[in-house]
Design a protein around this nucleic acid. Structure first.
Lengths: 233, 233
DNA sequence: TGACAAAATAAGTAGCTACATAATATCGTT
DNA sequence: AACGATATTATGTAGCTACTTATTTTGTCA
């Protein structure tokens, strides 16, 4: 008998979450200590600990040694996004993926790129412009700069067949990644490449990756009008 | 003697991460089972478990019972964003916060709002338009719809002094939150309110919150030109 | 009163055991 | 060979103990 009357850490988490939702604990309030909650809910402290860790990760509570656990006084909305390889993103939406290299050349990295990579001295990098297509229509225009130092192979890669996006992601794992989201107005050239009108509002995903302190690549992914980025549920 | 030669789960995580970075395990490869790693690194299986959980959360590996652990074959960039209350966001950037109610009235919720709230039948809601200012300059224009059913108090609130953003966040915790990011072109009215030119590209953060199945509010936060959203490090 | 040292406290971490659960692998039967 | 029942396996979870660490509180002395 006794059909799993054990309580799971998710139960504990939901219980506490519920108590915050119903206002039993408001922003800034201190929660009972783990050990007391454990006794009250008849479970082990480690179970409460796991539940609390989850609530901390989701930004709902703050924990400090000796200070105890309290509901965050300045609630934040914490959201997680998954940004897949562009090919997969298009295929998952049911589109037929297409790829087109526009341009690839060695150049002096401009100021903005150096800043994104957090390097101060001038530097030559490989600039790659490419278009990702869904069902033949432009989907994302990527403007990428790749560091020779971290990715020497980039000189000899055939980027007409495989995108740098895909090659890098499978061959150059990173230890740090910064993302920036913003909007730009399409200039004439961008508009033409993306098959839209100059001045159109475009959503931009900018990403820089590093291996330890060394920058790998920085890329500006300019999306077509109507592009929405959603939280992963 | 023996000055903490115990190995931490973060050490284990970094060790495995390192092994993936250096290519010892590539996308799709299967890692040794937890127990073996534990023996190899001379720690308990629970320590390896914790490390693996962290690597799973960051999207680097996949774990399946009996199937074992493998490096994700389709690597994703997983990013976390914190979106604070607008007042705090402005203050943290060193700006002086200002707030201005533009308009508040009961209305039939339009299609888009109903869709965002995932409700099918027509519904009356409170529409609130307000402007958040930084150092007297427009910063974010918010177009908000609040459900009477979940938030009956909204009828009697004085929104000329306190923003709905702030009131809701401290008084109506949510159990679910969806976010959408995209870009729009400023129409004449938006441009005037945000003190910019019609056609300017604006970054939009749209957010809908629920308490269980019941929608609380959906809000379109239209930012001023130049707004960037960064990952939290 | 103020400053500093010592004690107390609550979370964090590591280790162990035991059992649950979900996949997969195996084997026997038709 | 195809199928289904069964065994095996690797991760998931819960409980316990012991110890560590950061932080606050208390206490003592100048």
């Amino acid at each position: 008998m006794t059909p799993t009357n054990r309580i799971s850490w998710k139960d504990v988490r939901d219980e506490i979450h519920e108590a915050i939702l119903t206002g039993r604990y408001g922003p800034g309030d201190r929660l009972p200590r783990d050990a007391d909650i454990a006794v009250q809910l008849n479970c082990a402290r480690s179970t409460v600990q796991r539940a609390m860790q989850d609530l901390t990760d989701s930004g709902l509570v703050e924990r400090r040694r000796k200070g105890g656990t309290r509901v965050r006084p300045d609630p934040v909305t914490r959201a997680t996004f998954d940004i897949p390889v562009t090919r997969r993103e298009i295929e998952q939406k049911g589109g037929r993926y297409g790829y087109q290299l526009i341009h690839s050349a060695e150049k002096d990295a401009p100021r903005g790129v150096l800043a994104a990579c957090e390097i101060s001295s001038p530097c030559r990098m490989q600039q790659i412009e490419a278009l990702h297509l869904s069902d033949g229509q432009p989907y994302i225009l990527e403007d990428r700069w790749v560091s020779f130092e971290t990715v020497p192979e980039i000189r000899d890669l055939d980027l007409t067949r495989q995108s740098a996006n895909e090659w890098l992601v499978t061959n150059k794992p990173y230890s740090r990644c910064d993302l920036r989201f913003y909007a730009i107005s399409a200039d004439d050239r961008t508009a033409e490449l993306l098959n839209t009108v100059p001045g159109a509002a475009l959503f931009v995903i900018e990403r820089t990756t590093w291996l330890d302190a060394a920058p790998i690549t920085t890329v500006k992914a300019i999306t077509t009008p109507g592009y929405h980025l959603l939280t992963t549920i």
